[in-house]
Amino acid sequence: MGKLGKHNFMKRYSSISKYLPDTQAATKSKMIEMLGRYGSLYLKPDEGTGGRGIYKITKTDKKYILKGGTASRSYDSFEELYRSLHNLLVKNKYVVQKSIDLLKHNKRPLDIRVMVQTNRNRQLVVTGIIGRLAKARKIVTNFHSGGTPLPIETLLQSHLTGSKRSNYIKEIGKLGKQASVVLRESYRRNKAFGVDIAIDSNLKPWILEINTRPDMSIFNALKNKTMYRKILRYSKLKG
């Protein structure tokens, strides 16, 4: 399943559905409808990884703004914007997702990757949580698109302190595990899930996507290698 298939599968579970941002196939009518409802949305390849091919569309009073990478272009009408995207949408399957007003650290957006893996008893456990800080002026946080991996404690330090922060991080881990348990109903042989979680300005978490072949290298970018070594150890377990 691509992004939309996973989203629609998880949406059937009430424990998870409230954390899923509205996500639809990128048809012209859905883009118009969602821009009218939310004012801003993300356009993502259904099968894409690493933050490549992602755009942000924002509707203002007089313009439509399209951002991709660090580039930005404005259009006088939706029709004009849609014409610029038409070839892309014909050649590739895309989804549109409600834009989340991402929490920021040093004025740059952040999100979280939760690594969930199976133990020797085939039970899912959280083996790592890491923060990702977007590169200046970029719309995505992905490591391979210039995002900076940082300890989640660092990224949350200006928003939460002490036990509130540590308890919040635990809850984020629980949500990542809960989402992975749900998706494993469809991916029964999968041994690892990478859950991408956004946090909005009200500190509400949103499950953006679950990767069924998550990249472990992001955890190796941290100075402290404890999490990375644990993830590697779990990846080699039999069963």
Results as ranks from 00 to 15, higher is better:
165 R>D: 02
185 E>A: 12
234 Y>C: 14
50 G>C: 05
130 I>V: 08
68 G>M: 15
2 G>C: 12
121 N>H: 15
14 S>C: 09
221 A>M: 11
216 M>R: 15
205 P>Y: 00
142 N>T: 15
125 V>G: 13
199 I>A: 03
7 H>E: 09
22 D>I: 01
174 K>Q: 07
28 K>A: 06
4 L>R: 11
210 I>G: 14
99 S>F: 06
12 R>I: 03
23 T>H: 06
35 L>P: 02
98 K>I: 04
137 R>E: 14
135 K>T: 07
38 Y>R: 06
22 D>P: 12
160 L>I: 11
56 K>P: 00
79 E>D: 05
226 T>P: 09
93 K>L: 13
52 R>K: 08
191 K>W: 15
176 G>W: 07
82 Y>H: 09
6 K>N: 15
80 E>W: 08
1 M>Y: 12
118 T>Y: 13
123 Q>E: 15
175 L>I: 02
231 I>Q: 05
145 S>D: 05
6 K>D: 11
4 L>V: 13
83 R>G: 11
54 I>H: 00
130 I>P: 11
76 D>E: 14
128 G>I: 07
211 N>K: 08
33 E>A: 07
233 R>Q: 13
206 W>C: 01
142 N>D: 01
219 F>E: 08
39 G>F: 05
8 N>Y: 04
30 K>P: 05
137 R>A: 12
184 R>V: 10
183 L>D: 04
219 F>H: 13
17 S>Q: 01
130 I>S: 02
59 K>P: 04
177 K>P: 00
82 Y>R: 10
3 K>W: 11
68 G>N: 09
3 K>Y: 08
169 I>D: 03
54 I>C: 02
101 D>T: 11
17 S>Y: 01
36 G>N: 09
97 Q>K: 01
133 L>I: 13
70 T>C: 15
10 M>G: 01
183 L>E: 02
166 S>W: 09
90 V>N: 14
63 K>D: 10
230 K>A: 03
120 R>A: 11
73 R>Q: 12
131 G>F: 05
71 A>R: 15
58 T>I: 12
